[in-house]
């Protein structure tokens, strides 16, 4: 693929911002590893071998009797010490993930009541329900970022379309739409969310749709302004004189220019979405109980001030994610700044 000179310059501008480039790399690596969280932190082995038979417990459920000849026909529980002892006696061996706990694993045999401080076994300690904090952080990071990405992409698509329609048609359409947005954005979001939480149990998707109802408005202003400007540009008028239809005019001719403003905003919207989810989880109106989440970790930290590693971990991870996203956002902004020359000059 060849890049146009403009995009080459943008890439050079992005790379010139070393902080942003590094942030992007760190974020990508973290995101890639957490995407495969099941292989990094899990309470089941990656591979197991008994009597010449191979098993992949991380991907499939096996009955105990499948693995050891005289086992029960119930599902194998890889945390059960009796089962593991029997497994070892049969000469079985297994490759475990780096962190042998999943986000929901109750760690057994702790030296003292949970939460326990960091030690060689639980690198970041355990939380007040005796679950490994590191495992929860890995899963929590994944769900936060995936939630953020989904919300951002859907909100941007809706926001761009809404802004495009307003800016392009202008006049009465614009006027009515603007007043609607003003009223809509005045809705007490949190209160509605509390009511929602008392009616149905929030899940990833219901929460996403609910937040989407309010977060699409972020981009409308920018895109609307670009379209108000763009619809009177000469090349748009020339296309209109050719008889080009409205839809094509909007998305083929004007939108590419509005995309710069949109792309510049995206990392900031993403970090906003991550924060929203974390704050809802912190307040207890977020994802269902038991789900790994950074907000829930923070709320545990608040409830267990005697266990500072909880609050500390939550703070560092959430803060770290947001800082990385903001740095990436700054670099993207630089990349699209037409006045910026590669090498930092202006």
């Amino acid at each position: 693929m060849t890049l146009s000179p403009l995009n080459q310059r943008r890439l050079a501008n992005f790379r010139a911002n070393r902080r942003g480039t590094w942030s992007l790399w760190i974020f990508s690596v973290l995101f890639f590893f957490t995407l495969f969280a099941e292989f990094v932190a899990n309470d089941r082995p990656l591979f197991a071998k008994v009597d010449g038979n191979w098993f992949v417990p991380v991907l499939a459920d096996y009955a105990e009797s499948d693995i050891i000849a005289d086992g029960l026909p119930t599902e194998a529980d890889w945390k059960d010490p009796d089962f593991l002892r029997e497994f070892a006696e049969k000469g079985g061996w297994a490759v475990w993930p780096l962190i042998p706990f999943s986000h929901a694993t109750i760690v057994r045999g702790l030296s003292r009541p949970a939460p326990t401080p960091p030690d060689a076994r639980n690198w970041l300690g355990t939380d007040d329900q005796a679950r490994d904090v590191l495992a929860r952080v890995i899963y929590g990071f994944r769900i936060s970022v995936l939630f953020g990405f989904t919300l951002t992409i859907l909100a941007s698509v809706i926001g761009v379309i809404a802004g495009a329609v307003q800016g392009y048609y202008g006049g009465l359409t614009d006027l009515l739409f603007q007043r609607f947005i003003e009223i809509w954005s005045g809705m007490p979001q949190l209160l509605l969310l509390i009511i929602l939480a008392s009616v149905i149990e929030p899940s990833f998707w219901t929460l996403l749709i609910f937040l989407l109802l309010f977060s699409w408005m972020g981009l409308v202003g920018v895109v609307r302004a670009e379209f108000l400007r763009g619809r009177n540009l000469d090349y748009v008028r020339a296309a209109r004189a050719l008889g080009v239809r409205d839809g094509r005019l909007m998305f083929q001719h004007i939108l590419p220019n509005a995309m710069v403003a949109t792309l510049t905003f995206l990392p900031f919207i993403l970090s906003g979405s991550v924060t929203v989810l974390a704050s809802l989880d912190f307040l207890g109106f977020g994802l269902p109980p038991g789900s790994p989440s950074l907000g829930e970790l923070l709320s545990q930290g608040k409830n267990n001030l005697q266990a500072p590693w909880l609050a500390f971990t939550g703070f560092v991870v959430l803060g770290g994610v947001l800082v990385l996203l903001i740095f990436i956002g700054e670099a993207v902004r630089d990349a699209f700044d037409p006045r910026k020359l590669p090498g930092g000059g202006r």
């Binding site: 000469d234 020339a238 004189a241 050719l242 239809r245 590419p256």
Partner: peptide, 29 residues
Amino acid sequence: MQIVFQDPYGSLSPRMTAGEIVGEGLTVH
């Protein structure tokens, strides 16, 4: 009935090739 504008820098979409710009009217009509 067609029009040619004053500013040749403003009247061509910067994100379309010359071929696409000239061919657009054909796609429409």
